[in-house]
């Protein structure tokens, strides 16, 4: 009886239902999520007193001045460049696969491919990174295979290049790049596949009916309509690469990425303000990236 009256009460007041449903997640978003972002922003305007090792809670731009020192700028550009390369590579790999899944594959093949894309996500990220470390190691399976093909000459040449090389694939920026591309690939495939799924077959047929060859149809219809998916995927791959510290820590050389910088500054040195300022880097880069994407019309089809 009580329950019935309660149901009726809710039925007549949809706004109360909405408030009950949306209240908790909104509260969480505001307090925990945006709140911590604001805390970061505020902290980045404080400064670590080098003498006492305490944080002086007074507005200053000194921390940002430190961020723009050459060594720290290098970290920012190195990470951004890596994120850009990983994003472009993943988009190039993901698009044909997503297209095949969305438009060509039979239902059964599609399910299998789906499973193939999702399966790695079921295992621990750390395990996968270390597995790759073994694959890429000097005595690893990849080296063995390259040896088999007689390609160790070109590999050694690549590894001797400054900037991307190292003692082995497992300890070089190239290794970091390969593992990043692998690890974030599903986050690029799924949104592109979803976007392509929403493009009805009749659009491509209509374009072809109006005289467009396959390439023209792709350029004028399919690609622009898949663009929101590519942007969504690239937001994942780009921002995940910007913030990650496990992969460069396990596979990289002594040259830091943003994630490693944040990790070390907030750890032993206790320089929370500089760590926070470093974190603002990816936030600003992402905002700029999204503005450029919008300017280029990436969201027109949304």
């Amino acid at each position: 009886m009580m329950l019935n009256r309660f149901s009726t009460y809710l039925y007549l007041r949809p706004k109360v239902v909405l408030a009950l449903l949306l209240g908790p997640p909104l509260l969480y978003m505001l307090v925990v999520y945006l709140g911590s972002l604001v805390a970061l922003l505020v902290n980045s305007f404080f400064e670590l007193d080098g003498y006492t090792g305490l944080i002086s809670r007074q507005f200053t731009l000194a921390t940002y001045a430190k961020l723009f020192q050459q060594a720290n700028l290098d970290i920012l550009t190195r990470t951004t460049f890596m994120a850009l390369m990983v994003t472009i590579t993943d988009a190039l790999i993901a698009f044909p696969l997503s297209y095949y899944m969305a438009k060509v594959a039979s239902k059964k093949t599609k399910t299998l491919l789906y499973l193939g894309v999702m399966l790695p996500l079921w295992s621990s990220y750390l395990v996968r990174v270390y597995a790759w470390k073994l694959i890429l190691a000097k005595e690893g399976v990849l080296s063995w295979f390259i040896n088999l093909l007689g390609l160790n000459g070109p590999l050694d040449w690549l590894l001797s290049q400054p900037g991307i090389g190292g003692s082995s694939l497992a300890l070089s920026p190239m290794g970091v790049y390969i593992v990043f591309c692998y690890i974030w690939l599903p986050y690029m495939i799924l949104p592109i596949q979803a976007a392509l799924e929403r493009v009805p077959k009749s659009f491509e047929e209509a374009s072809s009916d109006l005289g467009a060859k396959a390439g023209e149809t792709f350029r004028n219809i399919t690609f622009p309509l898949a663009m929101p998916g590519i942007i969504a995927g690239s937001i994942f791959t780009f921002s995940l690469t910007l913030g990650d510290f496990i992969v460069p820590l396990s596979l990289g050389n002594s040259k830091y990425f943003i994630g490693q910088a944040v990790y070390s500054h907030q750890g032993t040195s206790g320089n929370i303000p500089l760590a926070a300022a470093f974190t603002m880097g990816p936030v600003v880069i992402m905002i700029v990236y999204l503005l450029i994407a919008r300017k280029m019309g990436a969201f027109d089809a949304l």
Partner: peptide, 20 residues
């Protein structure tokens, strides 16, 4: 012949207007 080499045009059931 592929559709783009035929001088016929189609009005689709769902109209298939390009949304972008």
């Amino acid at each position: 012949l592929p559709p783009y080499e035929r001088s016929v045009n189609t009005v689709f059931q769902d109209y298939a207007l390009f949304p972008h």
